[in-house]
Amino acid sequence: MTKAIEIENLEFSYATSDGGRVLALTNIDLSIESGEFVSILGPSGCGKSTLLYLMGGFISYENGRILSHGNQVTGPGPDRGIVFQQFALFPWRTVLRNVTYGLEKQGVAKAARIERAMRLIKEVGLSGFENSYPSQLSGGMRQRAAIARTLAVDPDILLMDEPFGALDAQTRGVMQEQLLRIWDATGKTIVFVTHDVREAVYLSQRVVMMSKRPGTIKEIVQTNFDKANDVEADEQFNRAVSYVSSQVRSEYASMEAS
């Protein structure tokens, strides 16, 4: 079976204002199976969001290669959809017209795109708000609309850059559960960047832990456990959270010592 994402010997650097270059990522090797849920975790500045944008084709890289379903990533493509931390909705469009936007660009007939959009609006729990504007919605509702808009064009891979980072704890928990339901229902491959250890361990099948800059993959932790149970009381979950937390702390300690 073709991997959803394959990254081989990836290196990325960026230019500075004085004409120099900063090495942001080095020696990145990662394979992600189709239908897998993988989180990327690491200290601030380690390049985890940069790695996500490289997978999305939004940034060019110098060395190594990135494949999406066996095809070289040379730019954005319909096989990969991205959900940003900030609610990237058009403020002048209603929820319905935001969700149908990508379908309009694809030339999907009006009746078909409205039908698909309304189904997704229902799936993300926004029924009754399809004619509302983003300014009339809470943060959690805006992010649900953004997820529905990304799902509307039916990408194989969802790339999510701290999508719940700006939400309060209660809303964040609701959104995490909803995302797991969407993943279970659609079988999408999800790559999820977060700073939150518990979130990473709870949502993912694997947590990719990155080192301080220049970011490289320090370790990949398997986090498969029964999410249907009360995870807070699950010994395997709490062991994983404790271990991953200790590894992240060690990277921060290394940053402070250097």
Rank of each mutant, 00 (worst) to 15 (best):
D156C: 02
L137M: 10
Q247G: 05
Y202A: 14
E232T: 14
T2D: 11
T26W: 02
R80F: 11
D79W: 14
A112N: 11
S246H: 00
L126E: 06
S258I: 15
G77M: 04
V83F: 10
R113K: 13
A88R: 06
Q176G: 08
V197Y: 09
V207L: 07
G70L: 10
I7L: 00
M160T: 01
V99W: 01
M255A: 06
R113F: 01
Y252G: 03
R249S: 06
C46M: 06
I190F: 15
G81F: 11
G19K: 13
K48R: 01
V95S: 10
M1R: 06
G70V: 07
P155C: 05
V248S: 01
N9V: 02
V244N: 11
Q143Y: 13
L120K: 07
I182F: 12
E123N: 13
R65V: 08
I190N: 07
P163S: 09
D79M: 03
F37E: 04
S135H: 06
I217F: 02
A200G: 11
F237R: 13
E123R: 15
T223L: 09
E199V: 09
E256F: 07
R21G: 05
A112T: 15
T74W: 14
M210K: 03
I7V: 10
E251A: 03
G140I: 00
S204Q: 09
M210R: 02
D18L: 11
E11G: 08
G125K: 05
D184L: 09
L52W: 03
L203Y: 08
E6C: 01
F37H: 02
S242M: 05
M118E: 12
T223F: 07
G42Y: 12
V174C: 07
V73I: 14
G56N: 03
R206V: 06
A145I: 02
L167C: 04
P76R: 05
S68C: 13
D18G: 05
F58S: 02
E251N: 08
N27M: 05
V73F: 15
A169H: 06
Q72R: 11
Y101C: 04
S34G: 04
K227N: 13
D156E: 14
R93I: 03
E199T: 08
F37P: 06
F225W: 10
E104W: 07
T216R: 08
R113P: 08
Q222T: 08
H69E: 10
I190S: 14
L151Q: 03
F192T: 00
E123S: 13
A233R: 14
R144Q: 05
I66Y: 15
R181L: 10
T171C: 12
T216L: 00
S250R: 02
I220K: 06
G75F: 10
R144K: 05
A228H: 15
Y53F: 04
Q247M: 12
A228E: 15
R239M: 08
G139T: 00
A200L: 08
R65L: 09
P155F: 12
A111W: 03
R80Y: 11
M141E: 11
E104M: 10
W92P: 01
R65P: 04
V108F: 01
E123W: 12
G173K: 14
A185F: 04
V193Q: 12
T186S: 10
G45P: 13
V108E: 00
S17I: 08
Y101P: 02
G77K: 02
F12A: 06
Q85F: 04
F37C: 06
